[in-house]
Design a protein around this nucleic acid. Structure first.
Lengths: 239, 239
DNA sequence: TATAAGAAGTCTTATACAAGACTTATCTTG
DNA sequence: CAAGATAAGTCTTGTATAAGACTTCTTATA
């Protein structure tokens, strides 16, 4: 009866939180098969239908993938998938370009006040990953990604990092990026940025300020991109 | 037995399609209360649980809103809601600006080949709605929206149109915009666009090419916006 | 004006069965 | 005897139903 006083959480939410915790902790690695609906229900003391509702929700979040007759599996962040979801540049005909990593540079440093405010855990120190990627034609993307050192220990030793960072985050640190908030603004390349991008000074560019969140809704990465896109467009869907 | 030969659609999908049709036809106008789960189930010969599954799906699509103890209601496209979902410019602190309609101009004309290709029904004639909106500070948005004449009869007589077109579409034509695909690219204002926007020639601008879809997934509007945003950013979420 | 009872709605859980995918045993055939 | 086709069995998710709990709002009453 005492339980009834405080707001009680529905059973399916308990199941969701349990499974999310297991995935985020690495107990259920990418590609692993989850317990079946019946198993999971028995294990947590709920019915199959309730376990099912939880798994459906996790599928909607993109954390797991399900197939009738096969089972439920932790989503594997493939390069293809990561690029499709989180790299929104497309050719004018809608084609997906294959970005090529031209340069990369990683360093550790103290976090700025802004980074402490935004990133999970208000980290004292961060890693900075600077990259230049090129697209078909003259288009270029200059990115600076910043992550807390505490969440990604030993990152420096793992250089060079692969093209798709989010795949790397998942494989090496069980950190699954499921969402990103972006703020876009148009700009004009000054001398320094033009030099970095290898384009003419005064070119039109797009600046993208992104914060990426993991399965536990923690801000795990801040990223500033400057995009020179004459042959590409930035593609988004509003709902 | 003959029914089993052709692929059978699940019952909950039948319920979904039925309700969507009623909303899109105007039989269930904005704000109307839907039949309860039990009623709807009885009416269509399915159980309450099946009717519920359909209504949950419609809520996820944004077509209806539900509240325990109250009921299910057709979503009302309020100016506030429409702006929040489909007008993504935000102040640098995240605040939502109140755009002011400065100029508006409507005309009917033949559709271009591109418009015929993109818009639903390959319309021969369209309405063109040209607007200039201003934001706090010096920021300006120049928009050209194009809609098929067939879907919006008598649009010219209804001028002047309100600030939020999507609210108007729903109230006057039972046309609910639920999704929009956008393609963004950076640019530099030439003399003509600078004049229209009332900004300096050579300013950085963002060009947004949008196609909006209704509840039946028909492309009902094509819109090209040119945004001069020095004090605002374009805010999107990737998932 | 405050309170309690009731009605009408959604929310949660449980159960049964259908359908798809994979494994394994069995049969056929060379 | 070996190899391949076939069929049965089992494990999984998908669909449908039903019963009771919870929430919200209305209405009657003190």
């Amino acid at each position: 009866m005492a339980d009834d006083v405080i707001s009680k959480t529905p059973l399916y939410r308990v199941v969701i939180d349990t499974v999310v915790a297991r995935i985020a902790s690495g107990e259920l690695p990418p590609g692993a098969m989850l317990p079946s609906e019946v198993q999971l229900g028995a294990e947590l003391g709920v019915s199959q239908g309730t376990a099912r509702k939880a798994l459906m929700e996790l599928e909607a979040r993109g954390l797991v993938q399900r197939a009738q007759g096969r089972g439920t599996f932790v989503t594997i962040q493939t390069p293809d998938r990561a690029l499709f979801n989180f790299f929104r540049l497309r050719g004018k005909d809608g084609a997906r370009p294959a970005p090529v990593l031209e340069r990369q540079e990683i360093l550790g440093r103290a976090a700025t006040k802004e980074e402490k405010r935004v990133l999970y855990g208000a980290p004292a120190r961060v890693f900075e990953i600077k990259r230049l990627r090129s697209l078909p034609g003259e288009d270029r993307v200059h990115e600076v990604a910043v992550v807390p050192q505490g969440m990604f220990p030993g990152l420096l030793e793992r250089a060079p990092l692969p093209n798709t960072l989010y795949v790397f985050y998942q494989q090496a640190y069980s950190c699954i990026v499921v969402r990103a908030d972006e703020r876009l603004s148009p700009g004009i390349a000054d001398a320094e940025m033009a030099e970095r991008l290898g384009v003419a000074e005064g070119s039109a560019v797009m600046r993208v300020d992104r914060v990426a969140y993991d399965a536990l809704d923690r801000a795990v990465e801040r990223r500033v991109s400057v995009i020179h896109a004459r042959d590409h467009v930035y593609d988004v869907t509003l709902k």
